[in-house]
Design a protein around this nucleic acid. Sequence first.
DNA 1: GCGACAG
DNA 2: ATCTTGTCGC
Length: 323
Amino acid sequence: MCALVACNDDVDLNRMILEAATQIPDGMVSTYGDIAKALGDVRASRAVGTVLAKNPRPFVVPCHRVVYGDGRTGWYDGQGNGADRKMDLLRSEGLKIVDGRVEDFDRVRFNAFETPSILKDLAEEQERLRALVVEKDDFSNLEFVAGLDVAYDGVIGYANIIKMRLRDLKVVEELDFSAEVKFPYIPSYLGYRELPLLRHLIHGDEGTVYLIDGQGRLHPRGFGIACQVGVCLNVPTIGAAKSLLIGDVEGDGHRAPIHLSGQLIGYQLHPEGRTRTYVSVGNRISLETATSICDGLMINGVPEPLRLAHIRCEEFAKKARGG
DNA sequence: GCGACAG
DNA sequence: ATCTTGTCGC
């Protein structure tokens, strides 16, 4: 009997980024990339900037001490404003700023962060769980497809699931769930941002395959969000994304193969005159079945359950805001 | 100038 | 993903 597989889906990376920034002492600076590296992946540097730009506690969290990699001080409020304010604050802490750059950058650059290398841990977890992905049809009496999507309003994520009967595409179930999201968007770590929401909408109904808005095996570590949802909740899943994260498309046909390090990992679906959809295995399904199912759902240019879930979670977010 | 990466 | 005026096209 295959049980659910645990993964770190409750990481508060926003908090960890702010906590790292508080470690920069008065009179020193660091960079967005330095913090990202300390957290385990330099590719999170944009996310570090995004989170610090929305710093809820200025001064308590000295985000003004975080500058660009070349020593330019940059903006203060994340809206393209406050460059002078940031330079004044740094000067008041004893730093020299010339032409918008920190003087003696190397000498005042703090890099002794004490923080878990969390992103490295998560990437290793993805590599480990990837071995648990089942790439063959593992379900009986497939009767329903459920599409999931998430919309955002500030720190809150609004998730929705639309379940349809495959036979006639009739919507048979719909569910909402919202909660605070504590993990920023970082390419290749999307599952850690959205699984905490999606898990409340998935109950492993018999005869149901789940369509996830994002990649499955078409991922740098072969473990995109569709795999993570599938393995961690032990359900059949398909990854269907609107753009490519990795992989090479062969031609631009209606159903073009996508290769990753020489292996056939996905298909591009490209209906005439419409946008492309990139399909790959999430879990407990074969690539051929996953692709055929998606193909049959492209009645409005994108897989219909995802289109409806997208509309619904945006309405959900708007309504919750009071609009 | 090169590379640029799901939502 | 979200921020957003006017503009283009079915």
